[in-house]
């Protein structure tokens, strides 16, 4: 007797759990090359709403204090472990990229390998960025004056359609390594790799709620990213109009916006797309004095 295949219900990873959109809405994603036909349905992806975004922010807020208080060394270890998990599942992940039409077979293998390397790169920075970005400031008095780096809090991430895995991870890693938590909107055109990434995060040591990944439509969610006052910064790949929207909302809610141009066709495999300055984008500097010898 022929076996009926068991298909996977794609769900988003929020607060350490796999959920559907509170609205119950979904949008179909088809396999590469079968866009027009009924056949080749890859899955019905959750079409998340601003309420889902609000809930994800609550989850990120809950996870935040514990994550920020861990030692940088521990955060580095956890990110490294995530790299290990991705390496051991690289075939599955490359498959997800190819099947969703985001990438060719060769390019997908390269994207996954580069993603692993990127995680390792930022894991290495975990207990070093403070030395590079912080400072002992010169003063004329019997005290020290330090500038130290602190996490901002909850950071919104809006991902690129080019490199739906590598781009997203390149935005997430520098944000969380500094003790921030994040709420991400995955690529609208190729959301499936981000769904698989969620399944990977669930088996890594990353505490639930540190990374929350939503799928859905940019035009529905970008305005809420802009105006939600609990989101302290946005790390986004956006077009001109979305950038304006983010900046207007950010002016009202006082948040930091790091916008990369979406129309440029960003090459995330480039070594220039990883740097300690991506970490600096989402930390606050605190300058404080301390008496000598006390």
């Amino acid at each position: 007797m022929a076996r009926i295949p068991v298909t996977k219900t794609p769900k988003v990873y929020v607060g350490g759990q796999f959920i559907r959109s509170e609205s119950g809405r979904v949008f179909p994603v088809r396999e590469a090359g079968s866009r027009k036909r009924e056949a080749g349905l890859l899955g019905n992806i959750p079409q998340c709403t601003r309420k889902d975004l609000r809930n994800a922010v609550e989850a990120a807020a809950k996870a935040g204090p514990d994550w920020a208080q861990r030692t940088p060394y521990n955060r580095g270890q956890i990110l490294y472990r995530l790299g290990e998990m991705l390496e051991s599942r690289s075939a599955e992940m490359a498959d997800a990229l190819v099947i969703s039409g985001a990438s060719t077979k060769t390019a997908a293998a390269k994207e996954v390998a580069t993603s692993v390397d990127r995680l390792i790169y930022y894991a290495g920075w975990s207990d070093k960025y403070e030395q590079v970005l912080g400072n002992t400031n010169p003063v004329a008095g019997p005290f020290f004056n330090f500038t130290v780096a602190e996490p901002m809090g909850i950071v919104g991430i809006i991902a690129d359609d080019a490199f739906p895995l590598l781009g997203l991870l390149s935005q997430i890693a520098p944000v969380i390594i500094a003790g921030n938590t994040c709420v991400c909107l995955a690529s609208q055109e190729f959301p499936y790799p981000a769904i698989v990434l969620g399944e990977l995060l669930a088996v890594s040591d990353l505490p639930g709620g540190v990374v929350n990944i939503l799928t859905g439509f940019r035009k529905e969610l970008v305005p809420t990213f802009a105006t939600h006052t609990h989101i302290r910064g946005v790390n986004a790949v956006v077009n001109q109009e979305e950038k304006k929207q983010l900046q207007l909302g950010a002016a009202e809610s006082i948040k930091r916006v790091r916008a990369r141009k979406r129309d440029d066709g960003l090459d995330w495999t480039d070594a220039k797309s990883q740097s300690v300055y991506d970490i600096r984008d989402f930390i606050e500097f605190k300058t404080t004095w301390h008496p000598i010898g006390a």
Partner: peptide
Amino acid sequence: AYQAPYYFTEAAESY
């Protein structure tokens, strides 16, 4: 606009 809890007095959370 959704509001952060720390904008209201005596909120326990600050993250």
